[in-house]
Write a protein that binds this DNA or RNA. Structure first.
Lengths: 253, 253
DNA sequence: CCTTGACTCTAACGTTACGTCAGAGTTGAA
DNA sequence: TTCAACTCTGACGTAACGTTAGAGTCAAGG
């Protein structure tokens, strides 16, 4: 008993490669004894250590951490594990979004069998939608977030496209009407269109509307690409005009 | 319009780092034009390309593949996506097992607040259990697999420990009794214990029993560590003795 | 015109966990 | 002794950039 193993044998015993054992040796994770000639010699008790290494590696721990844990005794294990779990869960979240993005794209692509380039667009849309959802979360209350999730289901890419177009058109029309009286019928009609589009997103929910307001106030801190994307809608005069139209509209209504 | 952007500006616009743009340039993924002095100049149309790169990267595609896809036109996109999805799903499977392993270990650790070294043992147990389940799958029919999954729920580590001990004890006892007559009362008692232990695992289910039989027949192909672990039970004489005991037992029963 | 601060360029090493040679020495059986 | 089978120590390669480092560029202010 107390058999001695040479690398190959020991590696197969544990289900790892010889190179890995070399590696762990160099990193100081598992240092076997040696023969005169320098051959590595492992004991069975080394197998336990190796199994621990493999296990922690399976959990995604970097070898450096593993070595530190062995070095400082196994204290703090449960602490490290909690941290590692959070890391893994975060990775899983990202993986899930990626998989969902592909699924959505495939789903939207199969029927028409459109040119592949369209798939890319679709994927970018999906990812950006997820990103935006993620990032805009902080402007909504907990309750509002749930409601936004609900409304999100109605957001097919076709709808999104139509919605973008309607906003663009409306904005252009308002810009053209900046000279008019905000109380005029024309201005009031534009205000009505505006209100309808907003409600198309908020569903008339005050909590969502409030979140939207906060988001707009904070637009200086939006990510660069969002600022880019909304840049066509940054004409302050348009917003002021609509404000006035609403105000007079309310007054006379 | 048709504004020209320098690296920093363009990078912020797209939400990537300057270094990344350098990298993509060198890899031939996105080659901007240059000023006389060699400064990179990006057009807005480059943004589209960059967004595609970022999107595919988000899906876990290696930059090499992305470049190939651009190079060979976007044909084969959906094919690549299907493959990528499978890759991601496999990764998710591994992540999930890792997370589950940590959860199990934490769950089993909190109550007793045992020394940290015990957590490692627990984790190794959990991982090995998952591994074994995974690997032994191929011996069971589809139906049997589902049933094994059911029975697996009863496999607390304490049970497993007790079970291992009982097998070890029984095996030792049989080895000591090899000289006896397989038809003797003593041998029959041992056979009964044996049968009970087997049923403890199979639940008396014939499909599971069949799978177990197949697995045993193929033990030459078991992974090295399983062979190691079951090596104490490899004494052929014991198995033959039990066979005979069962045979005579049936004859007289 | 010169300086200065803010940018930009390329080159090159660092990171992670080994895989994969390459060249040289060791073991054990025939 | 010889030869196949092992083992050893470098050392480069991988993926996607991060991070200096040294050097050149640009625009504004003095």
């Amino acid at each position: 008993m107390n058999k001695l193993y040479r690398v190959r044998e020991f590696a197969e015993l544990a289900g790892v490669t010889v190179r890995a054992l070399h590696h762990y040796d160099r990193l100081g994770l598992l240092k076997p004894s040696r023969t005169q000639a320098g051959y590595r010699l492992y004991y069975l008790r080394d197998l336990e250590r190796l199994e621990q290494i493999v296990a922690l590696k399976f959990l995604g721990m970097p070898l450096k951490h593993i070595r530190m844990m062995f070095h400082r005794g196994t204290n703090g294990m449960s602490e490290s594990l909690r941290m590692q779990r959070r890391v893994l869960e975060e990775k899983r979240r990202l993986l899930d979004s990626a998989i969902r993005a592909i699924e959505e794209a495939e789903k939207a692509t199969v029927p028409g069998n459109r040119p592949d380039s369209a798939i890319l667009k679709k994927i970018i849309e999906v990812i950006e939608m997820q990103d935006n959802m993620d990032w805009s979360k902080k402007y909504y209350s907990e309750e509002a977030q749930a409601k936004v999730e609900e409304r999100k289901k109605l957001w097919s890419p076709e709808n999104q496209e139509r919605w973008t177009k309607e906003w663009t058109d409306l904005f252009r029309d308002v810009e053209a009407a900046l000279g008019e009286d905000p109380a005029s019928a024309k201005a009031q009609a534009l205000a009505a269109r505006w209100k309808k589009l907003v409600e198309g997103f908020t569903g008339g929910d005050p909590q969502i509307t409030a979140g939207l307001g906060k988001m707009y106030q904070d637009r200086a801190n939006w990510p660069a690409n969002m600022q880019q994307r909304t840049e066509p809608f940054s004409n302050k005069k348009v917003w002021e005009f609509i404000q006035k139209a609403f105000a007079t509209g309310k007054g006379t209504n």
